Simulated scan of single mutants.
Amino acid sequence: MMLKSSIYLLSVALIIIVIIGERNFETIKITEETALLPETEEPQVEAAEKTEPEQLTFSEKLAAGDGVTIVFLGDYVTSADSLPDGNPNHVTLLTNWFDEKYPDQVEVVNAGMNANTVSHMKDRVATDVLVHNPDLVVISAGLNDALGGWKIPAKEYAESYELIVEEITASGDSEVLIRTPNPTLSVNENIKMLPYVAASRRLADKEGRHFFDFYSIMADEVHDKKIPQKELMQNVMHPNTKGQAYLFDKFKVYLTMELLEQ
């Protein structure tokens, strides 16, 4: 009788142990799967992040042999009809230079328009600039804002210019190069332009924006008598064929030394 009772108790104990063991095994299995889940997923996320290509800069695209698009946004000095004699202006000369230096890589769009201020340019950014999906946008403004018939105040000029730059760079695919205008033949007119040149300089101080201070370069060389300014101008405000060639030469030096070698 005692033996039967012992066997019965042992059997019950074994059944209880098996049941508890199975429950613990299920708990352990679920816990292990739950614990392994993040370890399995996190490396996959990290791998996806590592394989995402980095955004190349304009100069890096050129160096890699990729095609790029440059849009020149500006006023009369930029526009294709800026020289009455029909000679190529600085944009056309730069286009030819890019074709020689980077064959079949660079598409240049001239979006210059006579009598434009930053207010006019702001209204046509979408239709004349962004539609081309540019890698680089060269902007030149200030002559008409300071001296033209509209006389845009310097504060309004800076605000509108900032909106133009922000709209162009919003997607992250386009870089901006701000070019200051040329000095005029009039000292008094140049004094009026200085706040606009200073505003352009401040705009370019922000990260990711390039700056070609043509005004200061030309003014310094005129002051040092390295160049005869009158020979470079078709009127008080606008460069002639020699002046456009001079602008091209200085722009080419800037691009080679400051932008393309970054």
Rank of each mutant, 00 (worst) to 15 (best):
M1T: 01
M1Y: 06
I7T: 08
A13I: 05
I19Q: 12
G21V: 04
F25V: 10
T27C: 02
I28G: 01
E33N: 13
E33F: 05
L36Q: 10
L37K: 13
L37Q: 10
T40V: 10
P43S: 00
A48M: 11
K50M: 11
K50D: 03
T51F: 11
E52H: 03
E52F: 14
P53Q: 07
Q55K: 13
T57F: 00
T57M: 02
A63C: 03
G67L: 04
V68T: 14
S79C: 15
D81H: 07
S82L: 05
P84N: 09
D85V: 12
H90N: 06
H90R: 05
T92M: 10
L94M: 15
T95F: 00
D99L: 06
D99Y: 07
E107A: 06
V108Y: 02
V109I: 15
G112A: 08
N114F: 03
A115H: 08
N116G: 00
V118C: 09
N133S: 15
P134G: 04
D135I: 11
G142H: 07
G142S: 08
A146D: 11
A146R: 03
L147Q: 13
G148F: 03
P153Y: 04
A154H: 10
Y157S: 07
Y157P: 05
A158M: 02
E162C: 04
E162Y: 03
L163A: 15
V165Y: 03
V165T: 10
S171C: 05
S171P: 08
G172M: 11
E175N: 06
E175R: 01
L177T: 02
R179L: 12
T180H: 12
P181G: 02
N182V: 14
T184D: 08
V187P: 05
E189T: 04
V197S: 07
A198W: 11
A199E: 12
A199F: 02
A199R: 01
A204Q: 12
H210M: 02
E221N: 10
H223P: 00
H223L: 11
Q229A: 12
Q229I: 15
N235P: 05
V236A: 10
H238C: 01
K242W: 02
Q244R: 02
Y246C: 06
L247N: 08
F251N: 04
K252M: 07
V253Y: 05
V253G: 00
E258Q: 13
L259D: 01
L259E: 02
L260G: 04
